[in-house]
Design a protein around this nucleic acid. Structure first.
Lengths: 211, 211
DNA sequence: TCCTGTGAAGCAATTCACAGCT
DNA sequence: AGCTGTGAATTGCTTCACAGGA
């Protein structure tokens, strides 16, 4: 069966919510309550989950801890993933320090930059390496995911290094679409912060609902 | 006519691409080329634009500069928007320094924090204020959009201040859904960085296409 | 011929509505 | 009675296919 991409996005949101409920010591939740907390509908919650199994208890709801574990398993087969950040500017450093990654099992194990003053220093536990070493350190440290936070103008000079680095996924913060011609294509997710601003101002001007 | 939300998201992406083409001195682009650069289809590009008018020249394509201006007008009625950032931690500071906002006409005019050591200092041109002053400075500086970058645990204590601040839009980086009960509801866009990681690892594990 | 703009068709996602379990 | 799980109905988005202008 073909699973809608929107379902995957929502699963991640459900998981975030379940984590929070767990912290609050809430043990059971209904699809209705999970829906209000994640800005969707109860049917949507049930349908999304039904693609992967039957996790609920009829007449009761879902056990928070159990469901969280199930969704976690669906989204990330392995427990731990290694992440690196290319571009140790302010955004890259902020991501390296961002606690939300580690909490979710994504460990930032290295940063890369071309500035000699930064190379060799550390952010948290992660060292900043010369970006020229990218392919070998990706290999050495078994890095799965790469977050790209270099300035726009630095991207063309980086393409080759990126293409020869065997990461499996790229989280691209550079406001340009990234087209790599690697054989085993990496999954690329673009995150454009200015785009969000445009969307917000459109929503504001058209007095729309929350999204 | 009801315009799909996905269309709005894509328009912002087209705009980003057009800006880039303009920098490269490219004057004309076809829907096919715009599509490859933004990971969509030519029909989709044309359909998206057709919701708002007829901007192309049959047999030729679109004038890059002209189209960029049109899309800009669609997404943001006004030229300049004032933005503030609540939470001057590493992510908040990185956003304040992020050039992409200013380039797009979104000016960060203030930050807010509760740390007395930060209050009074500046990041770029923007001063860091005591978060207690949020409602009045929002009013005073005519702030439209608020980016929320406080740590998770600080959110509950902030709800009241947020509710009494008359911003029109909120870009929420806190990994919790934000529910405000203000009369004139602000538009809220959630940005969850860890969610992106989950999505990436799902895509990787299922060897899917770029998204 | 080349490329846009757009109704119509096709497809995918969401919502409805209810059967069935506890 | 309450709530899940799910086929069926519906809505809405995308793709098709082509008319028409340069």
């Amino acid at each position: 069966m073909e699973i809608p991409f929107a379902t995957i996005e929502r699963l991640a949101t459900y998981l975030r919510c379940l984590r929070h409920l767990k912290d609050e010591k809430i043990k059971i939740i209904s699809s209705a309550d999970l829906a209000t907390n994640t800005k969707t509908s109860p049917e949507q919650v049930r349908k999304d989950l039904s693609y992967f199994g039957r996790f609920g208890k009829v007449g009761t709801g879902y056990y928070v801890g159990k469901l969280a574990k199930k969704i976690e398993k669906i989204l990330k087969k392995r427990k731990k993933w290694n992440v690196c950040i290319v571009g140790a500017g302010s955004l890259g450093s902020a991501l390296a320090r961002y606690g939300g990654f580690k909490d979710s099992g994504y460990n930032v194990v290295a940063l890369f930059d071309n500035n000699p003053e930064k190379i060799g220093t550390k952010i948290g536990d992660a060292e900043i390496y010369d970006v020229k070493l990218l392919p070998e350190i990706v290999h050495e440290k078994k890095i799965d995911i790469l977050a790209l936070t270099v300035p726009k103008h630095a991207l063309p000079g980086l393409k080759e290094l990126l293409e020869s680095s065997k990461v499996k996924g790229i989280l691209n913060f550079v406001p340009l679409s990234l087209h790599l011609k690697t054989r085993r294509k990496a999954a690329v997710l673009d995150v454009d912060l200015a785009q969000k601003m445009y969307i917000l101002s459109y929503l504001i001007s058209n007095k729309e609902e929350q999204v």
